[in-house]
């Protein structure tokens, strides 16, 4: 894969506000993710918005649940692997 060009820019006040909310949710996820790595969550997708997890069997399902409650928030959909194992 290749990078063709790189540019820099400034965020608006509204973009900064929305990004900070996303960042707070990412901080919450990294502090709390261990409790989601349990057998019942194998293969689940988890969207986190406003420190609230939304579970789905697919990326789309988790996204739709999160968007239904928080239509204007940014979020990341995390994934709990279906198998325990090492990664290289």
């Amino acid at each position: 894969m290749a990078v063709f060009s790189v540019k820099t820019g400034k965020m608006s006040e509204e973009e900064i506000r929305r990004y900070r909310l996303l960042d707070e949710d990412l901080a919450w996820w990294t502090e709390n993710s261990a409790k989601f790595f349990v057998d019942e969550n194998r293969g689940k997708h988890i969207a986190v918005v406003n420190k609230e997890p939304f579970f789905g069997d697919t990326y789309q399902e988790a996204k739709e649940k999160a968007t239904a409650k928080y239509p204007n928030r940014r979020f990341v959909v995390h994934y709990i692997p279906s198998r325990r194992g090492k990664r290289i």
């Binding site: 894969m1 990078v3 063709f4 820099t8 400034k10 973009e15 900064i16």
Partner: peptide, 13 residues
């Protein structure tokens, strides 16, 4: 994104 700054890559993923 960072605290007010952003960097955008044009690339192939």
């Amino acid at each position: 994104e960072s605290n007010g700054d952003l960097r955008i890559f044009d690339l192939s993923i």
